[in-house]
Nucleic acid binder design. Sequence first.
DNA 1: TCACGACCTGTCCACTAGTCCAATATGTAG
DNA 2: CTACATATTGGACTAGTGGACAGGTCGTGA
Lengths: 207, 207
Amino acid sequence: MSVHHFITPGGMLQPRWQEAFPEALASAGEAGAVDSNGIVWLLATLPEWRAALGRQLAAHPAAPCVVLDPQPEERRALLALDGGARGYCHAQATPAQLREVALVVQHGGLWIGPELMSRVVGAARRALPPAAEAGDERFAMLSPRELEVARAVADGLSNKEAALRLGITERTVKAHLGAAFEKLGVRDRLQLVLLMSGATESREATA
Amino acid sequence: MSVHHFITPGGMLQPRWQEAFPEALASAGEAGAVDSNGIVWLLATLPEWRAALGRQLAAHPAAPCVVLDPQPEERRALLALDGGARGYCHAQATPAQLREVALVVQHGGLWIGPELMSRVVGAARRALPPAAEAGDERFAMLSPRELEVARAVADGLSNKEAALRLGITERTVKAHLGAAFEKLGVRDRLQLVLLMSGATESREATA
DNA sequence: TCACGACCTGTCCACTAGTCCAATATGTAG
DNA sequence: CTACATATTGGACTAGTGGACAGGTCGTGA
């Protein structure tokens, strides 16, 4: 099991990657999504690596992606993670380190370089508005689960991805989502997103 | 090795924790820092859990801490991670899940519940300085018509409605929209909306 | 115990969204 | 003139979405 797949500009494998994962496969970025039962490693040197990451995750949401960067940088790390990557690390990491990353990511963890971790989290905490989304009257009518599904969808996830995130069936996502549409008086996910993204800003208006 | 240590209000161990880690030890929060060669699990129900977390990490920086929360909440998750916790998860997680968390954290990973992950990272990305290429320039690559269509869709209109507003065919809307997706590196209208709404926020922030 | 709500799942069906291949018209730069 | 970008549409097709209808468990409160 767990055949790792490297997506690189030239479709070439570096020796140390092969040393870390002897079974590893490689392909060029243009090929689109790869079907891997292991981890998809994506080089940040690809011309359109963010788009490639998006395509990959859209095609196989269950296969975790890790972005490898020859010159790690906080900004790119955040873009990678925001794009759905589950890890971000130096392309020249040692085979042992790569295996650590693989282990962590395959067990549901998130891998960020230790020096980036505190910055990422710190930035996220500062971005939190004081007591944000503690309770907007509009969403009080939603059941807890409906709210979770709504939030997942508001993050841009498809039904399938939301189901994966919450550990339920796509069908159940639809059920909760349908109930949320009904209660909030919107007709589709797009208007739900607009409602929710506008909720934090317009809180002062409702107060 | 790896004796796990639970810091709880009463110094009591829940059965499921013991089931996950038969060797686990427990102590009350007031006792100060514990010396554990495994993971320190800290209950968010402690009166001063953040202070306790700080004391623990100051005393034993090498021992990773995970915060357990009976009622997980995004805000507390960020506070925990900002305080140096390496993981944040539901206090009622199954023994199997707890072992997953332990595995990830002990190998240098970060554990955030899947439902929190994208929100945390999204918040961090939005807090990023709007440096360089990621400003309004992003939409400069769109042709005028593509931008009009994108805006219509970002207002929550369906393809049919957008076509009506712009006086063109639904088919043409799809064409422009598809081109916009490609140029912006997003996969569907929902992510386009998130991208555009995020851009507006950061534009105001820079102004 | 029974009713009720939240939660989870299934099937079937209509509609929407997104992509592929292709065609036409118009302007502009070389 | 030619090449290229832009704008416009068509048809066909696949995937994704949302609704209707029909079940199932579980816990709380009457």
